[in-house]
């Protein structure tokens, strides 16, 4: 008997991913400036979606306050780049560590709240971050600040060099996030997470520390979200409290992406992100109506296909792109024959 996680569709997918990555890596050579910016934005949103999916879809921590870390990462990057004078890209690991560190007391406090109250609690924290940022006069207070030209120049001297670098940074961090989420979910802790999601009480009785696992997921997500936030505002070159800590931009849209694509699946965020940008590019002219459509779509999906588009496809066709589920592959080997004989004996 052979147990494997791979299937034909997932093997084909791995090849596909490899080719796509190669094509995307070379994008600065063939794509225009607007396309590069657009692709970077897609990558960053996809990264946010993966992290929120890990948080809400796997760990059951439904946060509506992830904008706290997006804004924190952005503001920290600006503060360090302006005051310390190190090139922004080199600061990204620092931002990540700082994000983890600040998330520790936040998690300790927020974990006292459960379910939906946890959600609103995280929102309060994001508000505290926003209001605090608005009080920092050296970073422009409520109206925000721009990245000084000297700092911008320190990334790369030419504009195209700068844009290529931040594109590659966005792609690299996305690959890192997806790989990490994938690795984490396949690890022991990841299996524990799935166990928690399926039944918290049972997981607890199996000796899995629910609290600790959720805690690790929360602070890890916070660190990575901070890095994504830093990159988002590095591309914008300008930051303000309202933009940095926007619940709509960094949480609502991300939630819609994950819900529409399929919460609790690894494929969902990709589908959701593609659909989100498709909708945005075609309907953005509608203004407010576009947001109404987005909200209504999420509600309809939640009511009629709570596992999202990917969940629906998976249930219908049994396809899985990321090799997650272990399945038994029948193979005529000595071991299989042995098991069969054993079963036969039992029957007698």
């Amino acid at each position: 008997m052979l147990v494997t996680r791979n299937s034909r569709s997932s093997n084909a997918f791995i090849v596909f991913v490899g080719v796509t990555l190669l094509v995307l890596c070379t994008a600065p050579l063939w794509a225009g400036r607007a396309d590069l910016r657009f692709l970077s934005e897609v990558f960053l949103y996809l990264g946010l979606a993966y992290l929120w999916n890990l948080l809400a879809g796997y760990a059951g921590l439904v946060s509506v306050g992830q904008q706290a870390y997006v804004g924190f990462g952005g503001y920290l990057l600006f503060a360090l780049a302006i005051n310390v004078g190190v090139t922004p890209l080199a600061l990204l690991p620092v931002v990540g560590v700082a994000g983890v560190l600040i998330a520790i007391p936040v998690a300790a406090l927020m974990f006292r709240l459960h379910g939906a109250y946890f959600a609103i609690g995280t929102w309060v924290v994001a508000e505290v971050f926003r209001l605090t940022a608005a009080q920092i006069t050296s970073l422009g207070g409520g109206s925000g600040t721009s990245l000084p030209v000297s700092v911008v120049k320190s990334i790369a001297s030419s504009r195209s060099g700068r844009e290529s670098l931040s594109y590659w940074a966005a792609l690299a961090i996305l690959v890192f996030v997806i790989a990490l989420v994938f690795w984490f979910l396949r690890s022991r802790s990841g299996l524990a997470l799935t166990a928690i999601r399926d039944n918290e009480l049972a997981a607890e009785s199996l000796g899995i520390s629910v609290w600790r696992t959720k805690f690790v997921v929360y602070i890890l997500t916070a660190g990575l979200t901070s890095i994504l936030g830093a990159l988002i505002f590095l591309q914008k070159l300008r930051i303000s409290p309202d933009a940095a800590f926007s619940v709509n931009d960094w949480t609502a849209f991300v939630i819609f992406i994950v819900v529409i694509g399929g919460i609790g699946t690894l494929e969902g965020p990709i589908i959701g992100t593609l659909l989100y940008f498709l909708l945005r590019e075609t309907l953005a002219d509608l203004g407010t109506a576009y947001l109404v459509i987005l909200g209504a779509t999420a509600i309809v999906i939640m009511l009629f296909a709570p596992k999202g588009i990917w969940g629906f496809i998976k249930e219908r066709f049994g396809i899985e792109l990321f090799p997650m589920t272990r399945r038994v592959v029948k193979k005529q080997s000595v071991q299989t024959q042995n098991t069969q004989t054993l079963k036969g004996e039992n029957r007698d």
Partner: peptide, 22 residues
Amino acid sequence: DILPPLLVTFGLSVILQNVMLE
């Protein structure tokens, strides 16, 4: 499951804000 009511009312919130804005 706490997720569906949370996300549905969240969607409702976005809809209400934008309908009022309009």
